[in-house]
């Protein structure tokens, strides 16, 4: 899932500025699960902004609504009326949700309430860790299901590097060495021979190096453009 963190109340107030009518929009998918921008967080943010602006002597009208997914037009259509009644939308979606609102409601000023961090999972309650870098050319089949792109600080394809010490990364002792994890896992699976295949330099054009990415599935499109 996409993992995000909420911005501080001070930053939210600064982003909202002098707008008087504010709509806080939560998202019911990834950021709900990571406790950053779901219905509960939207209600808390809304109440905090109301009380804070009242204490500052310029009370704002702040309401909140949460959609199932901010990144799909169909769900955004459901809040069109509410969006049209405010001066500013504070999105508690990930960066995609904020941009979807901006794209879907061109006349509305929208600001982000979260910092979108990474693609990851909860390793225990209250702890989230990065697992995927969306490089566009998955090599997990070569590494025993552990991603060296996302989890090795240097994204090495033929690790570990000299900075790996007792299973930890030189960047921080809190970071397990991805290549140590790969080695241990392949050993336990009896598949160490997988590592004998040297990997050539990765083609990063499938990642951000190729510019903004897009997937077109002609089999799924409803309207195929004519040449």
């Amino acid at each position: 899932m996409i993992i995000a963190e909420q911005k501080s109340l001070e930053e939210l107030k600064s982003l909202v500025g002098t707008a008087e009518k504010v709509l806080v929009v939560g998202c019911g998918t990834c950021v709900t699960v990571c406790f950053a921008g779901g219905a509960r967080e939207a209600a808390i943010t809304s109440a905090s902004l109301r009380m804070s602006s009242k204490l500052d002597g310029s009370p704002k009208q702040v309401s909140d609504v949460t959609v199932q997914r901010q990144c799909e037009w169909e769900y955004l259509d459901q809040i069109a009326e509410q969006v049209g009644q405010v001066d500013i939308v504070l999105s508690l979606g990930c960066g995609i949700g904020v941009q979807a609102i901006a794209e879907h409601f061109p006349q509305v000023w929208v600001v982000p309430g979260l910092n979108t961090k990474f693609l990851g999972l909860p390793t225990e309650q209250g702890v989230w860790a990065e697992r995927c870098a969306a490089c566009g050319d998955c090599i997990l089949g070569l590494t025993g299901g552990i991603c060296p792109i996302a989890r090795c600080s240097k994204s090495l394809l033929n690790g570990p590097c000299g900075g790996s010490e007792a299973g930890h990364c030189e960047v921080s002792p809190d970071i397990p060495c991805a290549w140590q994890l790969i080695y241990d896992r392949l050993t336990s699976l009896g598949r160490l021979n997988v590592l004998l295949d040297l990997q050539p330099p990765k083609n990063w054009r499938t990642s951000r190096d190729g510019g903004p990415r897009q997937i077109v599935r002609e089999d799924l499109r409803l309207h195929i453009e004519e040449d």
């Binding site: 509960r40 209600a43 109440a47 905090s48």
Partner: peptide
């Protein structure tokens, strides 16, 4: 108890 209940009471 949820933090929201505390905020609602204060608000």
């Amino acid at each position: 108890l949820d933090v929201l209940m505390v905020l609602q009471a204060l608000e």
